[in-house]
Amino acid sequence: MYFEKVKAEYVDGKRKLIPTGEPDVFYPADDVIIAIGQENRFEWIERDLGIEFDKWDMPVVSPETFASTAPKVFFGGDAALGPKNVITAVAQGHQAAISIDLYCNGLDISDRPAPDTKLFSTKMGIHEWAYDNDVTTDNRFIVPQADKKETLSNRLKEVELGFDLATAFKEAQRCLNCDVQTVFDEYKCIECDACMDICPTNCITFTTNEDDENSLRMKLLVPAINQEQELLVSDTLKTGKVMVKDEDVCLHCGLCAERCPTAAWDMKQFNYNTAKAGHLCYA
């Protein structure tokens, strides 16, 4: 096979491949496998059924309800919005199941059921929580693999062996328990700044408020530059200041709550379960 030599250049942030002008390269091969992507197949769907197709010949599917433009026909997985992956197919299947159940019961499929949420304190004692709040410093553990000699000679032999239980425990301990939320109660706060002082990542600041989010972000003890992460902003406190917490690098270690003399901070577990068809719950 001949290949043209190219180099990547970025024009207006778009990657372009420019031929280098060097002679084409020849690689001999006994077999060639083309793995450059995959496409849908809808020639079995007649075009007079009321199912609209777009200019790329993909069915028009709602990304919320997964309904097509025809009644009682739903799509999901790679067939719906193009090739993605297994977990996306599963997530879309859940949504389609909700729609099908609503539809079969004569209900409005655009009226989506809300997630089931719970928020409850993990406080067990003055300095004790129902989760391991100690932050480990272990680096990520490597999953062991079977011997290459064995795996290369038998295509059925699984390469990864999986964590053993001792390693699994240590890796699990690396989780920061981000679902245990730092919940702030401004009515209990006496503005002693103890939480601001003890926070190991300096993510809590008591300061005067700003109208503009970016100005507030920049005046925090450590400027909150990760725009993808939210700020937790309290109501105005007695001194006229607000408590601002940058969620970005909070370790969920609970030290703010342990240090707080008035229990204005609490570590509360937040459970969030997306709705399933018929509001069933298994776990």
Partner: peptide
């Protein structure tokens, strides 16, 4: 009563 189409992307380019 309803039809779900989950036929994936079965055609390799």
């Amino acid at each position: 009563d309803a039809v779900f189409i989950g036929t994936g992307a079965p055609r390799g380019k």
